[in-house]
Design a protein around this nucleic acid. Structure first.
Lengths: 171, 171
DNA sequence: AATTTTTCTAAACGTTCGTTTAGTTATTGT
DNA sequence: ACAATAACTAAACGAACGTTTAGAAAAATT
């Protein structure tokens, strides 16, 4: 997962995986089938990794403010242990955007739909927002999150945090 | 350029380039040296392609509003002829973010620095903004542009345009 | 028209890719 | 203890990668 996260699917070779995982190619193949399946498994693993953050987000009691907190938590996770890798889902979304890989796309869309649902739920706690505004802001935030994750690969933590502040001025 | 734009550097093979350019591999090599040089040349070509847009932006007389117009123009260009490819510079930035390729990075940084300079110049036409605000907003817009370009690969035109509207509410 | 130079095609180069096979070591069950 | 199963290493697989070479066709020069 770490390798795919950092380098993407295509750039990560079986040789690199062999070295990083500390086991032989054959062992990888007998455990995971092939590279593609291993990648899908990595996505699942990533999902589990961020699941805690998602749960915290979902169970937060401070309504709309929790969205911003979630953004901050994501940035914090991305910049942990000096590994600037962005978000594996966003990276994958970008790398596979021009490919025909339904299995990957289904995973990605499910992930995004899940996040969107939580965001909408949080926005709904604000009684001053009508439904149209909520949908519009949810789309905006989802896109902002995507952009933020992409930008987190090349920008500093401070820049990203400034960006979050700006982003939430109208929410 | 079209192929690199759509598929990225690594995924674009010499075979694909051969077919798209309509000439033999050998001809490509005798004209461009190697794949990497051809890619650098494609970046230059892209620069020329967007240069008109940059000039229009630079020479615009409507101050801060021209930044938003530039964002819209970029989106328009990205969605032209049904080719959802985002921005070649942003795509390249993302693909090469974890690599050690100084030649590419120099190109990228120059491109970004150029854009940032124009944005700052435009923001300065607003006398109500102090210098700190200008730098902060320039960073924000640059990052928003990056995110927008990344998101343009997977989101609809309408979503992107909504995103621009939201982004400029505080500028 | 003959010859030199350029430009093209086709084939092969060595490497690396993802994947598989053969063979050895370790583990398990009886 | 010994046989049967699992898990490992090393080597090789065909295919595709970027790149180069050999040689034919075309163009240009004399």
């Amino acid at each position: 997962m770490q390798l795919f996260w950092r380098n993407g699917y295509e750039t990560t070779s079986m040789q690199m995986l062999e070295q990083e995982m500390g086991i032989n190619k054959f062992s990888i193949y007998s455990s995971f089938g092939n590279k593609h399946s291993l990648f899908l498994e990595s996505l699942k693993c990533y999902k589990n990794n961020v699941n805690e953050m998602f749960e915290t987000f979902k169970n937060a009691s401070n309504g709309v403010a929790s969205i911003k907190q979630f953004f901050y938590d994501s940035v914090e996770a991305n910049f942990k242990d000096n590994s600037i890798k962005g978000c594996l889902v966003t990276n994958t979304y970008n790398e596979f955007s021009e490919r025909e890989d339904e299995l990957i796309k289904v995973q990605m869309d499910a992930f995004m739909a899940n996040l969107k649902a939580i965001i909408i739920e949080k926005l709904k706690t604000d009684p001053t927002k009508d439904e149209a505004t909520i949908l519009q802001q949810a789309n905006f935030l989802l896109l902002a999150k995507h952009g933020l994750a992409a930008a987190a690969r090349v920008n500093s933590k401070q820049e990203i945090e400034d960006y979050i502040e700006m982003t939430f001025k109208n929410i």
